[in-house]
């Protein structure tokens, strides 16, 4: 098996606040192969975005990466200096954010903003950069790129701006792109455009993609692997098909069941009782136990470890430790 592109091991990111320590990430493991698309799903507060920012080493105080390893192409990003990290960001790993309106600088033209990425990360001269900008804009589907070069962000629609952001993310030819809710701010028909664009460009270039989304259906549509997060932990991970078809963790099952679907049009939706607990006041043991119908004494006593459900699919639940069905 070839070495994975990204390996996250036991990553802990804590935020120290007046009210206590928020364990936004409490020991997560992720593995991503070259050219793979991984969906990280879960509800707000699960730690999806903190995972993205931790990998990019963009955690600001009061947050701190307390422990763990982030191996990117075999090198631990956590042992790199800030100067070395700055060379990685945008070049080896780039990011696409949720809201394209705020991700771009309103005072610079589209051309300047794409050019910045090329100037910093490639050795191209001005003419080569100019050509590259045009081909990038063309690739992300901006009509008449020549005419849009000197436009400012406010002159674009949300969907078009997200295309520009993707062009910037692709500019230096990164091996990994992290997209944090890239289509949440967009309409459904535009979301479909952006998702198929991202999938096509990533697959074409052989880059890997971490797609962070609250929408399981979005992840199911394009990811190879899915990791489900709840309260700072990965509770289930595996190939997209097996996680969606045979979810093992009660939280994943709850999420899937609470989505209104075509199959079950009327009647009551299955709901997960209760609410996501505050990260300042997590229950002992498994954080999902208070909302879980399968919870038993063991769940309140300790944190369940990931166990294999089937090859390439694992979940962290005491109910699985028997090794069979629940």
């Amino acid at each position: 098996m070839p070495a994975p592109l990204l390996e996250v091991r036991g990553l802990k990111t804590y935020f120290t606040l007046w009210g206590g320590v928020v364990k936004a990430l409490d020991g997560i493991d992720l593995t991503l192969g070259v050219g793979e698309i991984m969906g990280i799903v879960g509800e707000s507060g699960g730690g999806k975005s903190v995972t993205a920012f931790s990998i990019m080493r963009l955690i600001d105080p009061p947050g701190r990466i307390e422990a763990g390893k982030i191996l990117f192409e075999g090198e631990d990003l956590l042992s790199k200096s800030e100067a070395e990290m700055r060379k990685m960001r945008g070049r080896a790993i780039s990011m696409v954010f949720q809201d394209p309106m705020t991700a771009l600088n309103p005072l610079h033209t589209i051309k300047d903003q794409i050019d910045e990425a090329l100037r910093l990360h490639t050795g191209m001269n001005e003419r080569e950069r100019g050509e590259r900008i045009l081909s990038l804009l063309h690739e992300v589907g901006i009509p008449n790129p020549e005419e849009r070069l000197s436009s400012y962000p406010h002159q674009f629609s949300g969907g078009m701006l997200q295309r520009v952001v993707i062009a910037i993310a692709l500019a230096a030819g990164p091996r990994l792109i992290i997209a944090d809710e890239p289509t949440t701010a967009l309409d459904v028909t535009v979301q479909a455009q952006i998702l198929s664009l991202m999938e096509a460009t990533v697959r074409e270039r052989g880059a890997a993609l971490i797609l962070i989304t609250h929408d399981l259906a979005v992840a199911a549509g394009m990811a190879d692997k899915i990791a489900v997060m709840y309260c700072g932990r990965v509770v289930e991970a595996g190939t997209a098909d097996s996680v969606i078809r045979s979810p093992a963790h009660p939280y994943t099952r709850g999420l899937l069941n609470s989505m209104p679907s075509a199959a079950q049009t009327k009647g009551r939706l299955a709901q997960i009782p209760g609410v996501v607990p505050s990260l300042l006041d997590l229950p002992p043991g498994c954080a999902f136990a208070p909302r879980c119908e399968l919870a038993c004494d063991a769940c309140g006593a300790g944190v369940p470890a990931m166990v294999q459900v089937e090859p390439g699919h694992e979940a962290a639940c005491f109910a699985l430790n028997g090794g069979g069905n629940i």
Binding site: E43, G254, L255, S258, M259, V276
Partner: peptide, 8 residues
């Protein structure tokens, strides 16, 4: 709202 709360 989050999906699980949406269902509620």
């Amino acid at each position: 709202l989050d999906v699980s709360v949406q269902a509620q």
